[in-house]
Amino acid sequence: MTHDAPKSTAGRLKSRPQFLAVREGEKLRGKYVLIEVLDHKAPEQAPRVGFTVTKKQGNAVERNRMRRRLREAVRLSAQFAMKPGHDYVIVARRDVLETPFEKLAGELTDRIANGPKPRPSGAARPRKV
């Protein structure tokens, strides 16, 4: 049995210091995920990606299912939007479980390719006087 699915070209973030370093980068907020991006200024390096699902999101079975869905969405579509020399940490929100896969993959790709969503003009937080 052979699989014709595309091979992943993105590397993996594995250690805690790597994940913590990415927290200093840009944050891309979406409905289903928060994506943290750090530019290493090394365009020859392949993009690296890591996944985080907090215990607040559910039990171990649910968290692993969220992680698997995100990993597959990145493998099939979002990895092609990732820029070389960048690290990405994808933090799942609870809605990842119920969202149709195509919608999840589309949002991931869109968020990575287009950067942060512009805020509507009236959506800024009120300032304390």
Rank of each mutant, 00 (worst) to 15 (best):
M1E: 14
T2E: 05
K7F: 02
S8K: 01
S8H: 06
T9Y: 00
T9N: 08
T9G: 07
G11H: 10
L13N: 10
K14Q: 05
S15V: 07
S15A: 05
A21N: 01
R23M: 03
E26S: 02
K27A: 09
R29S: 13
R29N: 09
R29C: 11
G30K: 03
G30P: 01
K31Y: 04
Y32Q: 07
V33L: 00
V33N: 02
L34K: 05
I35G: 00
E36W: 02
V37I: 09
V37Q: 02
L38V: 09
D39H: 06
K41W: 08
E44V: 08
Q45S: 02
Q45W: 01
V49D: 00
K56R: 12
N59Q: 10
N59P: 12
A60C: 03
V61K: 02
R68G: 12
R69Y: 04
L70M: 09
E72R: 03
V74Y: 03
S77V: 13
Q79W: 08
F80Q: 15
M82H: 15
K83Y: 08
K83W: 10
D87W: 01
Y88M: 08
V89A: 03
A92Q: 06
A92R: 03
R93C: 08
V96R: 01
E98P: 04
E98H: 12
P100Q: 06
P100C: 04
E102I: 15
E102A: 11
G106I: 13
E107Q: 13
R111N: 06
R111P: 06
I112N: 07
A113C: 05
A113P: 06
A113Q: 08
N114V: 12
P116F: 02
P118L: 11
R119H: 15
S121Y: 12
G122K: 13
